[in-house]
Design a protein around this nucleic acid. Structure first.
Length: 731
DNA sequence: CTTAGGG
DNA sequence: CCCTAAG
């Protein structure tokens, strides 16, 4: 458990580069000394001393053996990684988040449907779309069903043809799903969809490479998720594939078709939720990261969607579909094209031209951030946006009482990937223009890793929504990553080309899959005990496990019903099984550099706001919506206290990294603020305190730490010697 | 981007 | 939590 060292190093030369940290002897030493002498550490913490020593030791050893020297530290990214890590996060997370949103939308939609709809329990396997759409997701079975669906989806070749990439847009109709099943249907669909398809082709063009590039093995492996578990999932998927293809569609369609589209989902089509946009801002790729290069900001322009959308009427049921499909296409296109951009920024795809202006600005912004390598900013911003969206979403809702419904949604994480082969219904298309062969892929939807929601029947729909939102948000907070599975195996080598990986071959569709993985950066098992403040995982585990929206809901005035939401991020499930990823050298390293390739960000595009008249939403999409309130849990407080005891009160970023690295929704500013409130709380009478009571013990520690570090700070600060200080004081 | 504080 | 000035 080398926390200190690490942090210190980070603080010191960390920013610059790895080497620097070792070099900076002075501050380093000082730090250690400080630590050693830190009473708080010594007294309150059992091992502080040892730890510190160890740290020192480790640092030296580290120099000697850069490799596995300090096993304990391994879990954490090397100090040097700071920059790296940030980069990684930016890259990786973004995509993840995007999916997360989508997922959220999807899940929410499902939940809503369920909630609003009948609790019907149509068989999971029911092929009928309509049927599925309505009942599909009710009850605990939901999880299982989803799993099934996803599995199928993942493996479904046929379905792939038409798939949409994002969940929210799940709406896309499956054009070819029928292909194998019903010739008529197929043809019919095709006709309807043909225009769309063509559009797709044109727009998407051939750029699969980009995606592949970003979705590297690392992402798969690095995540807690990665691992065999995923692979297994994927593998299993194929089995039912053909048979169940319809299910997928039904699922998808349900959203579209549903008269009352789930708010979240509908938002897409309606434009209430600007999450997905027609416009995607693509930032230029990172300087050197082939993998995580793509950042996307998506602006959704409802107007655009409507007007531009897919030309063909599609089915009567689909208004949404049209708009959605467009959005999807655009998105895809963007993603795909991003590669080009990366290679040759100057070059702009025909399709991209329209967006060029919009896109570019954002790009710069992101670029800058990337350069910085600090993860937080972008994350936060994104998060903010997401939250906002979520919040909006949560607003819909009518009161509904149902029996105590327990909804468990789970998805295997597997994402179906679809490729289009030209107009044919071929899922996979490989178009070799001149030099490059491009593969067109379409991801129908991403499912939410796992979502467990428990809510009293007395709760209102609004509360349900809120709950779901919270749950999803929690997941989002952890971040998501995308993994690529080929033939049921995780593709770990990001550097491999699609061709090398065998992706893009004829079999591709069958065997290509994407998975969403909770972004559990830190693997507890690997982490050093010290460093493993539970908080690191807290976000993914604990919070998810139990979220009590009461607070937020009450604030919003939605419902005060006691709601409990239980989320179990896949991470938890997979962490255990996914050892290999963790242990494998590649995996370890990958963790830092893991690429989360795709990442869509609801762009904070001014235009978006104006252009995107949230149809239904009363409120105009103001840019910055207040983030949802997430009261600190006792566990979080404890982690915070622990971290502050060690790091002091002036290094919030380090505190963040140390104890809340996995809690994407906790910024260092949040932590600082929380500390502030904690100090205040500790100084007031228990009767005056509100919210979840914080153990007095913790509060005491807060005061102690505060006092200690204040003093420490005072010591260091005084440029003006004690004399001056004294003078000031006296005066 | 981080810190530090006020709101 | 938000917003911002400073660094």
């Amino acid at each position: 458990p080398p926390p200190e060292e690490k942090t210190k190093a980070e603080g010191g030369g960390g920013r610059a580069s790895t080497p620097a940290r070792f070099g900076s002897g002075t501050s380093h030493e000082q730090r250690n000394h400080q630590l050693l002498t830190n009473p708080l550490l010594n007294f309150k913490q059992p091992k502080p001393r040892a730890e510190m020593v160890f740290q020192k030791w480790s640092s030296s050893s580290e120099m000697e053996s850069c490799g596995g020297g300090q096993v304990p530290e391994m879990p954490r990214v090397p100090k040097s990684a700071r920059g790296k890590r940030s980069v990684r996060k930016k890259e990786a997370q973004s995509p993840a988040q995007m999916s997360a949103i989508d997922l959220l939308a999807t899940v929410a939609g499902k939940l809503f449907d369920e909630g609003a709809g009948s609790l019907g329990n149509t068989s999971a396997g029911a092929p009928a779309l309509a049927a599925f759409a309505k009942d599909a997701l009710v009850k605990q079975e939901q999880c299982d069903e989803q799993m099934k669906l996803f599995k199928h989806e993942a493996t479904d070749q046929d379905s792939c043809n038409e798939s949409a990439i994002l969940p929210h847009i799940v709406l896309q109709r499956v054009v070819n799903n029928a292909r194998n099943e019903d010739p008529k249907a197929k043809s019919e669909v095709q006709d309807k969809e043909s225009s769309m398809i063509s559009y797709t082709k044109a727009e998407l063009g051939c750029n699969f490479g980009v995606i592949a590039d970003r979705w590297s093995p690392e992402s798969v492996e690095s995540g807690a998720f990665t691992g065999d578990a995923v692979a297994r999932l994927m593998m299993t998927a194929p089995a039912g594939f053909h048979k169940n293809a319809p299910e997928m569609y039904s699922l998808l369609d349900s959203m579209d078709v549903d008269v009352k589209p789930p708010p979240l989902v509908s938002s897409d089509s309606t434009g209430e939720m600007p999450l997905h946009g027609d416009k995607i801002h693509r930032s230029t790729s990172l300087p050197r990261a082939p993998k995580g290069v793509g950042f996307f900001a998506v602006d959704r322009d409802d107007d655009d969607d409507k007007s531009s959308g897919c030309t063909h009427p599609s089915t009567a049921t689909n208004k949404d579909f049209t708009s959605n499909c467009k959005a999807e296409y655009n998105r895809v296109r963007k993603l795909l094209t991003s590669k080009h951009r990366k290679v040759a920024p100057a070059r702009i795809h025909k399709s991209d031209l329209s967006y060029s202006d919009v896109e570019r600005k954002p790009s710069f912004r992101y670029k800058k951030m990337h350069t910085r390598q600090r993860t937080q900013r972008s994350t936060f911003k994104r998060r903010k946006l997401f939250d906002r969206h979520l919040a909006l979403a949560s607003e819909f809702g009518t009161a509904n009482g149902k029996g105590n419904t327990k909804v468990a949604g789970r998805n295997s994480n597997a994402v179906s990937l679809e490729a289009n082969k030209g107009t044919n219904s071929m899922p996979f298309q490989k178009s070799c223009g001149s030099n490059d062969c491009h593969v067109k892929l379409r991801i129908k939807s991403f499912n939410v890793p796992e979502l467990l929601v428990e809510i009293p029947d007395s709760a209102t729909v609004g509360s349900l929504k809120k709950t779901v939102l919270e749950a999803v948000t929690a997941i989002l907070g952890g971040g998501l990553r995308v993994g690529v599975l080929h033939h049921g195996k995780k593709v770990r080598d990001d550097s491999k080309t699609l061709i090398q990986a065998g992706i893009g071959q004829d079999d591709m569709l069958d065997n290509l899959g994407f998975s969403l993985e909770p972004n559990c950066t830190q693997n507890p098992q690997v982490q050093a005990p010290e460093d493993v403040s539970f908080l690191e995982n807290i976000d993914t585990t604990e919070p998810l496990a139990r979220i009590t929206p009461a607070d937020s809901s009450s604030k919003l005035g939605e419902v005060d019903v006691s709601q409990e939401l239980a989320l179990t991020p896949l991470a938890m499930n997979y962490q255990g099984s996914d050892h290999d990823s963790v242990h494998s050298p590649g995996a370890v390293s990958s963790r830092d550099k893991d690429s989360r390739a795709l990442f869509l960000v609801p762009a904070a595009d001014p235009n978006a706001g104006a252009v995107v008249p949230a149809n239904k939403t009363k409120r105009s999409p103001e840019q910055g919506h207040r983030r949802i309130r997430r009261p600190f849990s006792v566990a979080e407080v404890e982690a915070l206290v622990l971290a502050v005891e060690k790091l002091g009160t002036g290094r919030w970023r380090d505190v963040k990294l140390r104890a809340f690295d996995n809690a994407k929704h906790r910024t260092y500013v949040d932590l600082k603020d929380k500390w502030k409130t904690l100090v205040h709380t500790a100084s007031i009478s228990p009767q005056q305190r509100r919210g979840e009571p914080v153990p007095q013990e913790l509060l005491d520690r807060v005061l102690a730490a505060q006092a200690y570090w204040s003093q420490q700070q005072a010591k260091l600060q005084p440029k003006t010697p004690s004399l001056a200080e004294a003078r000031l004081l006296t005066q």
